[in-house]
């Protein structure tokens, strides 16, 4: 039986809506911006889906459209900015004073360029090679960012030192 392209696409939306929203959230760090990016991306996807040749790649295709849509919106809304070299940010120096955070707070403290590959790996289930293709970088660079991100998170969520008896504020 012939299945209409819209029906197949609706199945994709039902399957991946949550993952796409969470991915967009870690790009935008804002619920409304994340939902807007997913809405616009899926509208584009809806129209383009009948022409998608490799249906097996639909998941990474959807993530790529969401990413593209987020940066399109960000470029529309944000002022002109010079390039930031994400790999040159010293996570240790920047975040050392914030140890003891909850994991979500720690993730919010990470630059988006580090949280994004984590979200793609853990939420999206993508391999380093797939993430590298999505981010238009090398597999080695992805591995480095994932390692640095986890190191930084471990420091950030590390328990605060226990104070000596009698020295507490309470």
């Amino acid at each position: 039986m012939h299945t209409a392209p819209e029906s197949s696409f609706e199945h994709l939306v039902r399957t991946y809506a949550g993952e796409l929203y969470r991915y967009a959230y870690w790009l935008a760090r804002d619920r409304q911006l994340a939902e807007d990016a997913v809405q616009e991306a899926l509208l584009r996807g809806w129209r383009a889906y009948p022409r998608l040749r490799d249906r097996g790649a639909a998941k990474s295709w959807l993530f790529a459209i969401v990413r593209n849509e987020f940066y399109r919106q960000a470029a529309r809304d944000a002022p002109l900015a010079d390039a930031v070299d994400i790999d040159a940010i010293d996570l240790a120096d920047e975040r050392a004073s914030h140890a003891g955070l909850e994991m979500r707070e720690a993730l919010m403290a990470l630059p988006a360029g580090y949280a994004e590959p984590l979200a793609l790996q853990i939420l999206g289930g993508f391999s380093c090679a797939e993430i590298a293709a999505l981010l238009a970088t090398t597999e080695g660079a992805v591995m480095t960012r994932l390692t640095r991100a986890r190191h930084a998170l471990r420091r950030l969520v590390a328990p605060r030192p226990v104070r000596a008896a009698g020295g507490g504020a309470r």
Partner: peptide, 16 residues
Amino acid sequence: AELRRGLEVPIPGGLE
């Protein structure tokens, strides 16, 4: 496991 829980932000009701 903690990292996954941190990344899994709540999905808005009725999103799908």
